[in-house]
Simulated assay, not measured.
Amino acid sequence: MFKSLLFMALVATVSAHGNITSPPARLPGPAMVEACGQAAVDSILADGGLPIESVVNPLDSCNLFFCRGALLDDNIDIVQEFFSGQVVNLTSQLPIPHEGPANVSIVLAATNKILGEPLLVFDSYADENLPELPANNTAFSITIPDAGSGVEEACVEAGDCALQWFWFGTGAQQTYESCIDFVIVNTDDTTATKRRSTRSRM
């Protein structure tokens, strides 16, 4: 636990090309070291918003194209509770902009596929040629799909789904991802707590 918190503190203080800062997104930790290798994690610790293409020497067991390789086991204490129809405010930091498309989607962890349609789409995002980035590039919101969309059934336990921010800088040819782990809760259940998957520990 201490090691995981230390990793998170280090990532939060380094420079970045871009990432999600709120709600808290997955960060590297000991489980990612095991899956991706120390060199890969060290490169992310050196730049918290490092593009996927610049991660150093990832192991074959490292799935960089889902949450940039970060794992639920290192982030179980920051799993969010959302409900159908909830508006979720997100904040990103973009110290180094690169124009290109971006989206926010619910992604199924088992398949790394988007559930339904993207919740938010930017055809042009973080355009470095603008004198100032639009406010909605760094502060925006999405709405969790209503009941009947399949989200309630698919996102039951921590690790089933992630809210993934995806951005591709076309000129730079660089890919950025941040993931927010969440579960769907019933708004009538006032005692609901985060349901944590044990599958990754079996």
Rank of each mutant, 00 (worst) to 15 (best):
F2N: 12
S4E: 12
L5Q: 12
M8L: 14
A9H: 14
V14C: 12
S22N: 09
P23Q: 08
P23I: 04
P24K: 13
P30T: 06
M32N: 06
M32G: 04
A35S: 11
Q38E: 06
A40T: 01
D42L: 08
I44H: 05
D47L: 07
G49Q: 08
P51L: 01
E53R: 11
V56I: 12
P58K: 09
L59E: 09
F66V: 11
R68C: 09
G69K: 07
A70Q: 13
A70V: 07
L71I: 05
D77I: 01
V79S: 03
V79P: 08
E81G: 11
F83S: 14
Q86V: 00
Q86L: 10
N89T: 15
L90E: 09
L94P: 15
A102M: 07
A102C: 07
N103K: 14
V104Y: 12
I106S: 10
L108S: 10
L108Q: 15
A109N: 10
A109M: 13
A109R: 05
A110Y: 03
A110M: 04
N112R: 14
N112H: 10
K113H: 10
K113I: 04
K113P: 08
L115V: 02
L115F: 07
L119R: 02
V121A: 01
V121T: 14
S124Q: 13
Y125T: 00
D127S: 09
D127A: 10
E128F: 06
N129G: 06
E132S: 11
P134V: 00
N136F: 14
T138N: 06
S141P: 00
S141Y: 12
S141I: 01
T143D: 12
T143N: 13
T143I: 04
G148C: 07
S149H: 03
G150L: 03
V151A: 02
V151R: 03
C155N: 11
C155M: 09
V156M: 02
E157D: 14
A158E: 09
G159Y: 02
D160Y: 04
W165M: 00
W167R: 02
T170G: 00
Q173S: 06
T175I: 00
Y176H: 07
Y176S: 03
I180M: 04
I180L: 02
D181W: 03
F182N: 03
I184L: 08
V185S: 06
N186T: 11
D188L: 14
K194A: 12
R196A: 08
S197L: 09
T198M: 13
